[in-house]
């Protein structure tokens, strides 16, 4: 029931709200996929990957480079290639890093995005350095911003449905078993490393796709897609919503992204503070970690029940 109302509201919004909110909502839909795909590995498989932005960035840069090159492929083909490239990297990184635990996994994955950003800078002739690569107007998802909005909405829904199905499948149940107790899972015959790796690749695939869609939605790619602030925003959204629940990260992603880009930005402008709106985000993250590390929405639900 709630889903239907929410969908109806999202379907009507372009006709009743200012254009910039429509644009931001489109970005938010893609951001939701970032968060849900991270939750797949962090919330369901229990592997804290702090380098999720690597997959987003690889997806985005792959399609951007293919489109600015002389290959006349349609946009969606290169987005898919971006997703597959991200999966390949996910497999490589996963195969090496998933043996590491706790600190070490977090540490290595936290460093990967920094390496990517440095490589973008060193080979700035190819990747455009810190200025990024602008795509032409003709590479946009659609000519019309409202059409772009609906495409992003459809993309988000498709990804959510796919990930929900995955989680409810036998694969998802095995992943949950691994998260709860790795040794027990091994004892009952689950190939822990293999399933972790599958989860890692799936997570990378969806992130890569979303990165590619993002590139064509805003017709520009830049190192911000790899960078630590985006990673922290993803984590904050997932943590606020509650890890390991599908609805939680979705609500969290909407809340955080709109708060960051719409509410915080407007507060900053209204008070004419000369600060970045990200300041609020970091304060919020610190408060959330200190006060309710298990998530705000699960807590609220428990309070109501």
């Amino acid at each position: 029931m709630w889903w239907i109302i929410a969908l109806a509201v999202l379907a009507i919004i372009p006709f009743v709200s200012p254009p910039s909110l429509v644009y931001l909502l489109g970005l938010t839909f893609i951001f939701v996929v970032f968060v849900v795909s991270w939750d797949l590995i962090a919330g369901y498989a229990g592997q804290i990957n702090l380098g999720h932005t690597v997959f987003i960035g690889i997806g985005a840069y792959t399609t951007a480079l293919l489109q600015t090159g002389k290959i006349g492929l349609p946009i969606w083909a290169t987005i898919l290639i971006g997703g597959l490239t991200a999966t390949a990297f996910g497999f490589l990184i996963g195969a090496i890093c998933l043996r590491l635990r706790g600190y070490y996994l977090a540490l290595v994955t936290a460093i990967l995005p920094l390496i990517c950003i440095q490589i973008l800078n060193v080979y700035s002739e190819i990747f455009g350095g810190y200025e990024g690569i602008p795509l032409g107007l003709d590479k946009a998802l659609a000519k019309d911003p409202i059409a772009e909005y609906y495409i992003a909405l459809a993309f988000m829904l498709a990804c959510i449905v796919a990930i929900t199905l995955l989680i409810r499948s036998p694969l998802g149940i095995k992943l949950k078993a691994i998260r709860e107790d790795e040794e027990l899972a091994e004892a009952i015959g689950i190939d822990v490393v293999r399933y972790k790796l599958i989860a890692f690749c799936l997570s990378a695939f969806f992130a890569g796709l979303a990165g590619g869609v993002m590139a064509h939605y805003r017709i520009t790619v830049g190192p911000d897609l790899f960078d630590v602030p985006l990673m922290l925003t993803i984590i904050l959204a997932a943590v606020i919503g509650g890890l390991g629940t599908i609805y939680g990260p979705i609500i969290g992603a909407f809340t955080i992204y709109l708060a960051k880009t719409y509410v915080f930005a407007r507060i900053v402008q209204m008070l004419s503070l000369n600060v970045s709106d990200e300041i609020f985000l970091y304060i919020l993250l610190i408060v959330v970690i200190l006060k309710c590390p298990e998530g705000i929405f699960p807590k609220l639900r428990r309070l109501i029940a």
């Binding site: 254009p19 910039s20 644009y23 990024g132 017709i219 790619v221 830049g222 911000d224 880009t261």
Partner: peptide
């Protein structure tokens, strides 16, 4: 940063 710049440009022009 290209991302912030484009969305801010849009805000000035449209909103």
């Amino acid at each position: 940063d290209a991302n912030t710049a484009t969305s801010e440009f849009r805000r000035l022009a449209v909103d």
